[in-house]
Computed example of a mutant assay.
Amino acid sequence: MLEISKSLFTGIGYLVIIISLIPLIRHDHWAFRVCEYPRLQKLFINIFLLIMLIGFFGISTASDQVILVLLVLNAGYLFYQVFPFTILAKKQLLTVKKRRVDRQIGLFIGNVYQYNRKAHDYLKTINSKDPDVVMLVETDKWWASEIEPLYKKYPHQLLVPLENTYGMMLFSKFKLHAGKVKYLVEKDIPSVHAKIELPSGDMISFHGLHPTPPVPNENPRSTERDKEILLVGKEAKKSKLPVIVAGDLNDVAWSYTTDLFSKISGLLDPRKGRGFFNTFHAKYLFLRFPLDHVFCSNDFTLIDIKRMPNCGSDHFPMYIKLQYSPEIEAKQEEPEADQEEKKTASKKINKAT
Score class of each variant (00 low, 15 high):
Phe79Asp: 03
Phe79Trp: 10
Phe79Tyr: 10
Gln81Asp: 05
Gln81Tyr: 00
Gln81Ser: 03
Val82Ser: 05
Pro84Gln: 00
Pro84Asn: 02
Pro84Ala: 00
Thr86Ser: 08
Leu88Val: 06
Leu88Arg: 05
Ala89Cys: 06
Ala89Gly: 07
Lys90Cys: 12
Lys90Gly: 12
Lys90Tyr: 11
Lys91Gln: 15
Leu93Pro: 10
Leu94Tyr: 09
Leu94Gly: 07
Thr95Val: 06
Thr95Glu: 04
Lys98Gln: 14
Arg100His: 13
Arg100Gln: 13
Asp102Gln: 13
Leu107Cys: 13
Phe108Pro: 09
Ile109Arg: 02
Ile109His: 04
Ile109Asn: 06
Ile109Phe: 05
Gly110Gln: 04
Tyr115His: 12
Asn116Cys: 08
Arg117His: 09
Arg117Glu: 12
Lys118Arg: 15
Ala119Leu: 02
Ala119Cys: 09
His120Asn: 12
His120Tyr: 09
Asp121Ala: 04
Leu123Met: 14
Lys124Gln: 13
Lys124Glu: 14
Thr125Lys: 06
Asn127Cys: 07
Lys129Asn: 10
Pro131Ser: 06
Pro131Lys: 02
Val133Pro: 04
Val134Gly: 06
Met135Val: 14
Leu136Glu: 01
Leu136Tyr: 01
Leu136Asp: 01
Val137Asn: 03
Asp140Leu: 01
Asp140Arg: 01
Asp140Trp: 02
Asp140Asn: 14
Trp143His: 02
Ala144Ser: 09
Ala144Gln: 15
Ser145Tyr: 11
Glu146Trp: 13
Glu148His: 13
Pro149Gln: 11
Pro149Asn: 11
Leu150Arg: 07
Leu150Ile: 10
Leu150Lys: 03
Tyr151His: 14
Tyr151Cys: 04
Tyr151Met: 06
Lys152Pro: 05
Pro155Phe: 06
Pro155Gly: 08
Gln157Asn: 11
Gln157Tyr: 09
Gln157His: 14
Leu158Gln: 15
Leu159Val: 04
Pro161Tyr: 07
Glu163Ile: 08
Glu163Arg: 04
Glu163Met: 07
Asn164Arg: 13
Thr165Ala: 13
Gly167Lys: 00
Gly167Pro: 00
Gly167Thr: 01
Met168Gly: 10
Met169Cys: 01
Phe171Met: 13
Lys173Trp: 10
Phe174Arg: 02
Phe174Thr: 03
His177Lys: 10
Ala178Ser: 08
Ala178Leu: 07
Ala178Asn: 15
Gly179Trp: 00
Lys180Gly: 10
Lys180Trp: 05
Lys182Thr: 12
Tyr183Gly: 08
Leu184Val: 10
Val185Arg: 00
Val185His: 00
Glu186Pro: 05
Glu186Phe: 08
Lys187Val: 10
Asp188Met: 11
Ile189Thr: 08
Ile189His: 01
Pro190Ser: 02
Val192Gly: 01
His193Gln: 14
His193Glu: 13
Ala194Glu: 01
Lys195Asp: 09
Ile196Ser: 03
Leu198Glu: 12
Ser200Gln: 12
Gly201Val: 01
Ile204Val: 10
Ser205Glu: 15
Ser205Ala: 15
Phe206Gln: 01
His207Arg: 12
Gly208Ser: 14
Gly208Arg: 05
Gly208Phe: 11
His210Lys: 05
Pro211Arg: 09
Thr212Asp: 05
Pro213Ile: 02
Pro213Gln: 04
